[in-house]
């Protein structure tokens, strides 16, 4: 398991190769990249600042990956989340999961993102022409995470 919280950018292909190369049993690699958009709630966003709770961040991400590992037959997972000042087009988050077959990787990758969005202590503040504002949590994200509680097709 690899967990990193960093201000620097990341290279997806490099991280993907590093994760899968360790294990010749890997037959599937699923990944997700989150990117800064230039528009949110109808306003132009020029800068996004990400704050976090350092002592809790890595711990909560580890707990989320452990949960995915206990639920699906996956080999490994990587989560990189950036903090600090970001701009539109910048990459924010990377999740990569490896497994023998695609089903487990796809599901675990989506699960990791859904849980990360509701459990990991990160907060976004955006700069817009109407001023700086903290991004509000979305109900749709809470619902996306909740659906894993009732999903019988685990």
């Amino acid at each position: 398991m690899t967990i990193r919280v960093q201000t620097e950018d990341f290279d997806v292909s490099h991280e993907m190769l590093a994760l899968r190369q360790k294990n010749p049993k890997v037959g599937a690699v699923a990944s997700f990249v989150g990117v800064v958009r230039d528009l949110n709630d109808g306003d132009d966003v020029s800068v996004l600042t990400l704050e976090h709770y350092p002592e809790m961040t890595e711990r909560s991400l580890r707990a989320i990956v452990e949960k995915a590992k206990s639920r699906w037959n996956i080999y490994d997972a990587l989560v990189i989340h950036r903090v600090g000042t970001l701009r539109p087009l910048d990459q924010i988050v990377l999740v990569i999961v490896t497994s023998a077959h695609r089903g487990e990787s796809f599901k675990a990758c989506e699960f990791l993102m859904d849980y990360l969005k509701t459990q990991a202590p990160f907060w976004k503040k955006e700069k817009t022409p109407v001023g700086d504002r903290w991004v509000e949590a979305r109900d749709s994200d809470a619902l996306a995470a909740q659906r894993w509680n009732s999903d019988s097709d685990s």
């Binding site: 989150g34 990400l50 976090h52 709770y53 002592e55 809790m56 989340h81 924010i92 988050v93 993102m113 990360l116 969005k117 509701t118 459990q119 990991a120 202590p121 990160f122 907060w123 976004k124 903290w134 991004v135 509000e136 949590a137 994200d141 809470a142």
Partner: peptide
């Protein structure tokens, strides 16, 4: 104990 108060999280 270390207690922390914060808004609902908005990472990702």
């Amino acid at each position: 104990d270390e207690v922390a108060f914060f808004p609902p999280v908005t990472g990702g």
